[in-house]
Design a protein around this nucleic acid. Sequence first.
DNA 1: GTTATTTGTGCAAACGTTTGTATTTTTGTT
DNA 2: AACAAAAATACAAACGTTTGCACAAATAAC
Lengths: 341, 341
Amino acid sequence: MKRTTIIDIAEALGVTPSTVSRALAGNSRVSEQTRDRVREKALELGYQPNVVAAALRRGKSDTVGMVVPRINRHFFSHVISAVEEVLNPAGFNLLICQSHEKADLEKLAVQVLLKNRVAGIILSHALETVDFGVFDAAARERVPVVQFDRVHTAVAGPRIINDNFSGAYLAVKHLIKSGYKRIAHLTGSLSVNVYQERYRGYKYALEEAGLPIDTGVMENSITRETGYESTLSLLQQTRFDAMFCAGDFAAIGAMQALHDKGLSVPSAMGIVGFANEPFSDFISPRLSTVEQNAHDMGHLTAKALIRAINGKGPLEADWEEVVPVRLLVRDSSMRSEAVAY
Amino acid sequence: MKRTTIIDIAEALGVTPSTVSRALAGNSRVSEQTRDRVREKALELGYQPNVVAAALRRGKSDTVGMVVPRINRHFFSHVISAVEEVLNPAGFNLLICQSHEKADLEKLAVQVLLKNRVAGIILSHALETVDFGVFDAAARERVPVVQFDRVHTAVAGPRIINDNFSGAYLAVKHLIKSGYKRIAHLTGSLSVNVYQERYRGYKYALEEAGLPIDTGVMENSITRETGYESTLSLLQQTRFDAMFCAGDFAAIGAMQALHDKGLSVPSAMGIVGFANEPFSDFISPRLSTVEQNAHDMGHLTAKALIRAINGKGPLEADWEEVVPVRLLVRDSSMRSEAVAY
DNA sequence: GTTATTTGTGCAAACGTTTGTATTTTTGTT
DNA sequence: AACAAAAATACAAACGTTTGCACAAATAAC
């Protein structure tokens, strides 16, 4: 069956398509009366606007593209939901792509979005990404880009980031307060802003307390598996009584390694993770961690994009916004008394 | 800066846009030579096809819409990834929407997708959904719909489902084999196919073994919180020595309730969950569960949709495909010896 | 009562493709 | 060399909106 168009409505009412278009858009140049007649007829005929045609004519769609490393990460999926919460009421809908942490897939996703003439792009980089050429294309085509969490200054536009420095600082400071003295660090790639900042916070807390910062830092130890392996080799290389892990998955792996070696948490070893993955609350011992505010981040990101789309000028185009994080103290970092390892 | 179109390429080469279009599409009616010249020039000018215009002209886009209750569920996010794996190479891209388990949001999402003239829709219903009117609109507009996991026969088109019956049957049979005799059941809404089938498998296993089926079944106990509450009230109402939970979150809640009541798992109480959530493997005791094959499900779903889009007729339009599940026996359901409760 | 202003509508072009049909050019046949 | 067939390209309409401009009718200003 043929879909009804504004032309059908126009013919049924004896007006022109342009009037119908304006009526449906709520344009004040069409009288209240015909506006109602049009709306009524549209409902009657079950009219569904063809946004594709509108997008072509306007040169811009009401679709926003979003590229994340993976949608099944607690943090990212919650940011997505929060972004939706803002974008949908504003009349936009979301086209979600995954980069699977691959730079080439990220690039491809951005190209697909540009081909689809999206109104804007929200993005968090893959770990690998080093070439930011595609984003020049976006800038050239006047498609605003807002980065969140994993951001890079090479890309123009607003950046919404977590307060990774403070989160790490608070976590390590808390470990120190709990009586731990030699604190190791499991982190991701230090070429990523997120891990750089967490590392900086870690170092700062140690320096402030006058503790050694050479206790052991393992890069690229962010998954459960690498966390497990890195912990085992750290145990051989150096002595430490606590670990600050830049991610909860790494913390889980570390705890498993410690368990296998007969070291109990938190008495022999204190642990703090990062991200508050859903499981962190009901493993044993319950994992202390740093909670990121995915909800606020999503809201801020979406709002920044909407502002950019509405062209509030390139004045405020390039700035950074920091979302506070929160330390959740649970069992894995609480010992009644400091015990030398 | 103005974006390059096929018209620009045509003018630069002294041919017409139609020739350029056909050249880029690899149409055999244009000579090899000009095809190469066009491709070269397109590359040189940095041409990016405007898929919006193409979609308008063809009356159909290369975007596929997908509606899921939530993207942050382990199962759904993995199905999405698997769907992507098939759809992207086939030249489609995914527009993902969340219904947040609300029937009205699901309806809205489908309408948005239809307005966007998607090539097809992949969908798993919200728990609430009872009115399937929107899907008639989809059928009328010849937009194929493929349902997965949470399906309903009121909607036309292929349905890809998990073998919930067998999963439940295997789980309960395993509990029985382990020596448990009185097995309770925590389930979701029995108006959803998924939970209906799991319930059926549960009952069948009990009947087969000649065990009582009146041990206690609690509906709407599928979250961690409701699982916790339901277990507590079950403990007051009736006697049982094992639980089959229709979801891992419920199982976690149950384990917590049992722990609070001083009942140890698996010695005093056996537990099997469903879905193999990522945490199930590293809680203590490790949770036995039924693993669903999200990957295969996604692949089959995407392939079914592609077949439907390519119009392999309404002959095979309405059928059901069952994806096998697998019982994962871990610690929560293994006791060396049956102990009467 | 004439002219200026406002208000409501129509006309037509444009957005960038795709595609059926017509036309030209090339190739093949006799 | 003449003609048919095939191959390559051109022409033009269409997809369903939006929107600048023109125009008519109604209202306001003098």
